[in-house]
Design a protein around this nucleic acid. Structure first.
Lengths: 248, 248
DNA sequence: AAGTGGTCTAGACCACGGC
DNA sequence: CCGTGGTCTAGACCACTTT
């Protein structure tokens, strides 16, 4: 416990406050001690405490009122999965309280189609590793996804095919290739299931699906993953936390 | 210019830096002066400068690398509309470069349906003001929306019906009722246009639509607006910037 | 080893809300 | 008026990256 966990201080304080609130030390509706006292009680500076409080306020766990005090929210919102976070389909399924598995996996290398090459900043003759699979929530098919990785990223890496079976490609990118996904840009569209797709998902043709097309980037704005996913609507919840417009 | 614009300092610095970058003082790819120098040059503390830099990094305008420096991003992402921001449909249309108008407006007060009452924390017998309308982008219908406002909010306010015609209810809430929408929680679902809806939007029945259901809250977590919107998919773009998972 | 961004502190002053 | 949260500062020390 010597080093590490640096900037964690504010996060630690945040966690400690969460506990103090959930255990009823600070019950819903009550007012917290003022910032000075609270900072001293927790053994951190007021600045650090404030960062923790700000985080809790954004979570909706507390309410802050200038000149009045900081209060524990009586009606906290709880979002299991907010879509502005880059979760995998597996996470989405688990957030709904189901068990996530996959089937019908196809892994192959092939030349990038033109629209894929464009999104990944590749040349048309470049190859991509394509991973197709069906996601199931408790045995029920709920999504079909196609992921494309530039083959050149894999050229010098050592990995096994089984590494690709895990439902988090982000983890694979980070652990095997040293590439951390910083953010993704996704586009949403409703779609009707064509027969080939309906068959994969055990649906009838014409069922409405939520189609998502996404490119993931590293911190350096390098595109590393192109994904297409077809989601069965009534099986997965798509919830978005939308901040009001304006300057932070 | 005496008072006001308090916490604006970091925002002001941010804006000044944007200008320094866009005018080519700090061209794309170049490294900015270190934080100490930059802070002194701009006449603010390093803390304040860092807050500004952090904002610019989140915007994607600059890249920060520990132990290396801060760089102007060569390939800045520019999202006209990111869905994690609480824009109105009118904004969405204008972001696509079209002219936004509305038609078929219906405004009436009626008892809240049970699912509406639940979402707005109202009692079943409470009344809501309902605003229905069709949005057009350059004459073409692209969305149908139903907004519900608790009637009690309007009881003591003075306003005219025409205030409700503007395409930003958020602006109405802020200016007439003193209620600022802090965030909304939205749920997305694909849907097939039923005949009544298809007729309103000049579509054929069974066309896939993107359905959005949203509750807007004030900073104090008070629900003030419930909205349902049916979007024509190929007319509007739904783009989401998804940050990588993890603690803030 | 030198230079950079990352974290944390203590303290000052300001603006808002209620008494 | 007082107490609260909101903003800003100067400075210390740490950790990462390159030379």
């Amino acid at each position: 416990m010597a080093l590490k966990a640096r900037r964690a201080l504010a996060s630690q304080v945040r966690q400690r406050l969460r506990i103090l609130i959930s255990t009823g030390i600070y019950p819903p509706g009550s007012r917290l001690p003022n910032e000075g006292e609270l900072a001293e009680a927790l053994g951190v500076s007021r600045t650090t405490l404030r960062e923790a409080l700000q985080g809790l306020a954004e979570e909706g766990l507390i309410l802050r009122r200038h000149g009045h005090g900081t209060f524990v929210n009586q009606y906290p919102q709880q979002l299991t999965t907010s879509f502005d976070r880059n979760f995998s389909i597996g996470d989405l399924i688990r957030a709904g309280g189901h068990r996530s598995t996959t089937r019908d996996i196809v892994i192959q290398t092939r030349p990038a189609q033109s629209y894929v090459a464009t999104r990944l900043s590749l040349l048309p003759e470049d190859e991509v590793l394509v991973i197709e699979r069906v996601f199931l929530a408790d045995q029920r098919p709920v999504a079909f996804s196609v992921d494309c990785l530039p083959a050149i990223l894999l050229a010098e890496a050592n990995y096994e095919l089984t590494d690709l079976y895990g439902d988090s490609l982000h983890a694979f990118l980070a652990q095997r290739l040293g590439l951390t996904v910083h953010h993704g840009i996704a586009q949403l569209r409703p779609l009707l299931a064509e027969s080939w797709l309906a068959q994969k998902l055990d649906l009838s043709s014409g069922t409405p699906l939520l189609y998502l097309e996404q490119v993931d980037y590293t911190l350096e704005q390098r595109p590393v993953l192109f994904s297409q996913a077809y989601h069965v609507a009534d099986a997965l919840e798509f919830i978005v936390y939308r901040r009001g417009p304006g300057e932070r």
